[in-house]
Structures are given as structure tokens and as C-alpha cells.
Amino acid sequence: MRQSPFLCTAAIGTVTVALCILAFFAIVVLNVQQLTQNWSREVQVVAYLDEVPAKNRLEMLIKDAQMIDTVEGVEFISRQQALDGFRSRLGDDATLLEGLESDFLPASLRISLKEGSRNRVSVEKVVSQLKSKKLFSDFRYGQDWLDRFDSFVSLIKLSSAILGGFLLFAALFIVANTIKLTVYARRDELEIMSLVGGTSLFIKTPFLIEGALQGAVGGGFSLGFSYILFEFFLHQGLSSLLLSGGIDNIIFLPTHFQLMIIAGGIFLGFFGSLLSLRKFVRI
């Protein structure tokens, strides 16, 4: 820093900007993931019973359904509960149900699936296993919606991976080149160190430590700036976009992500320096 303050500041600035972009990207992806997780709770199988079995038989049936490895929970909905639910959904129009028998709706099992199994393949696996019981008249699991949801989640995952990969590569490239400039500015010093008998380790170590420190400082700054920009701009923008989708609140990066950003800075600084030094230190 003392020897080339401008280039050192440039290196820290580059790491800060590169990691800020990554942090922003991570915030958006995390919140969209939160949204898709929220939506995925809607993925459930409703298995309608022909007849309500005896109590012990019903308990056995629920237990069997719970034994399926992708199933998170099973809830029995009696005919009366189904009617009550229907009535409450109708709201002011519930009067339409007056005069109808209370048992005109079938009882059912509402089966929710574990996170990670909320997709068409897992749903159909559960349905096929339940079909073998021959106690169910029908299954409903929002087939069309599930197809669209699966495609949407796949698209989010793929675009996150591609864009994240590009951003990470671009960050590494830009940071490595800026650090190369700082090393290039001190190439005379490197040459003299080598001339007077400095070992490769002796010459490289201070530069690597400096690179790692610059990366850590850049990582810290990027978290600070990301938080400020998140609070003042991104939070509001994401809220208007995502809160209507049903999630409770917009989240900033969790602690382990923040540590990953700092570690990412150290990684960029250290390996950026190492790559540059390989070019300039040849003993």
C-alpha cells in the first residue's frame, strides 16, 4: 500500500465491485429461490377416498402413505371438513350450499411432499404407490400447474448457474488483471529480490499476503456496499416484485454467504497474485 497506493486502491476497488455484483446476484437468486420454495408448498397430492374406511384401517393407510420416502406429511380431510373448507372458500356465496347433504363431498388424504421432491416425477411416484391400495377414487395434483412450475424452477436454476458462472469468471479475470498491474509496477523490485538471492517463497510470500489482504478488504467493502445498496434500493425493488408472490420478507445474504463473499475476496486476491507472480518471478 505504501509503495503503490494508487494500484493497491485500484485492486481493492476492483475486488469490491466484482464481489458487489456477485453479492447482488446472490441476493436476487436467494429471494427468487425463497419464492419458488414458497410456491412449492402448493405442490401436494389430494387422494380422494371411495369410502371412509374404519378408524384403524384409516390410521394404517395414513401410516403407509407417511412411509413413502418423499412424503413430508399426510392429513386426513373428512367429508365435513371438506364441506367446511368449500363453504369458507365460497364466502358470501356459501348460501348456494344450503339444502345440500353434508356428505356430498368425498373424504380425502392431503399429502405434502418433502422439499426437493416437489416435482412431477416425485408426485407421480407417490400417486402410483397409492393407486396400488385401490381405496382411492381419484387423485388431484395440479398436473398442468406442476409442469409449468417444474419448467420455471429448471429455468431459474439453469440461468442462475450460467449467469453466476459468467460473473465469477469475469470477476476472476478482472481482478487477476488488476493485480497483475500492481505486480507489474513492482517488477524491478521482484527482479532485484531475485538477483540478491531471494528464494521463490521469500519473494512471493509478501505479494501473496498482500493480495489476500486486498481481497479480504475488498470482500468486506463489497458486503458493506451491498448492504447499503440493498437497504436503499434493492430491497424496495425486490419487494414490489416478489412480495406479491407470497413470501414474507426480502432477505439479505445469510451469514454463511457473507463469509463466502469474504473468502471469495481472499481467493481472488491470493490466486490473482499467484498467477501474476508466475509470470514475473522466474528463478
Partner: peptide, 14 residues
């Protein structure tokens, strides 16, 4: 070996 060159250079002045 290249790792020994620094030790040779310590015996030289340039």
C-alpha cells in the same frame, strides 16, 4: 536445480 540458484546468487555480487 532452480531451487538452489538463490543460494548461489548469495555468494555473488552483481
Amino acid at each position: 536445480r532452480s531451487s538452489r540458484i538463490p543460494f548461489l546468487r548469495r555468494q555473488l555480487g552483481v
